[in-house]
């Protein structure tokens, strides 16, 4: 057992968003959470990450390898996230962005860029790369951070159909290869990794 969320409920003012949500995530698991817009998928992921938003009420507990981490700060959790509108720090080039968060060997950022045929971008600034390249770099940044759990908030939104298949493959292959557990949030059935591991939040209400 790696990540275990027990009876998580989230309310926005007096409206129930999430009711008794439970999940068990193991290494190399990629679980998909499905649900329509405004249902609270992102808020749930942020709560698992440790970010609480104003006007929301949170209940339930989160365990990581048996340890209760509900009250731990984001900094101390072995969990990281790729946000829906995630970004690279605009004043640092690609390699500097990667080096900033690298928790692995010093040579690893370059190595991962080379491995994924992105080494030519190392000195580019974030505003000079394409959306598809940005998605890949964001995942490499998270892999360098080396957390055991990765939360993905609609990471394939806004990517054109031609590149989507390739990027999805890049994401899933890298997550499995690096033995991460991932929770993927989406409203699109096409993005589901494993049809057997899907939680429909609409039914959870």
């Amino acid at each position: 057992m790696m990540l275990n969320c027990k009876n998580i409920s989230i309310k926005y003012t007096s409206r129930n968003l999430i009711n008794n949500f439970n999940i068990n995530l193991k290494r190399k698991d990629i679980i998909t959470i499905k649900g329509s817009s405004g249902i609270g998928k992102t808020t749930l992921l942020k709560y698992i990450l440790g970010v609480k938003e104003d006007n929301f009420t949170y209940n339930g507990e989160i365990y990581f390898n048996g340890e209760n981490i509900t009250n731990q700060t984001t900094l101390n959790r072995n969990i990281s996230m790729i946000f829906q509108d995630d970004f690279l720090f605009p004043h640092l080039n690609i390699i500097q962005n990667l080096e900033l968060t690298n928790k692995l060997d010093e040579t690893k950022p370059k190595e991962l860029l080379e491995l994924n045929n992105l080494i030519h971008l190392r000195h580019s600034m974030p505003n000079n790369i394409s959306g598809g390249e940005l998605s890949r770099i964001l995942l490499i940044r998270i892999l360098l951070l080396n957390t055991d759990v990765v939360l993905l908030d609609e990471p394939f939104n806004g990517i054109d159909k031609e590149n989507k298949f390739e990027i999805k493959k890049f994401f899933f292959d890298n997550l499995i290869k690096n033995a991460k557990g991932a929770i993927l949030v989406t409203h699109n059935d096409e993005d589901i990794y494993d049809n057997k591991k899907v939680i429909n939040l609409s039914k959870n209400l």
Binding site: T73, T74, F87, L100
Partner: peptide, 24 residues
């Protein structure tokens, strides 16, 4: 947004403020 992102990336507050927020 920068604050939430840097917490997510496990960067401490001082480095966040001086290296990520201040230059912008």
């Amino acid at each position: 947004k920068i604050l939430i992102n840097s917490k997510n990336l496990k960067i401490n507050n001082f480095v966040t403020y001086s290296l990520l927020v201040f230059p912008i």
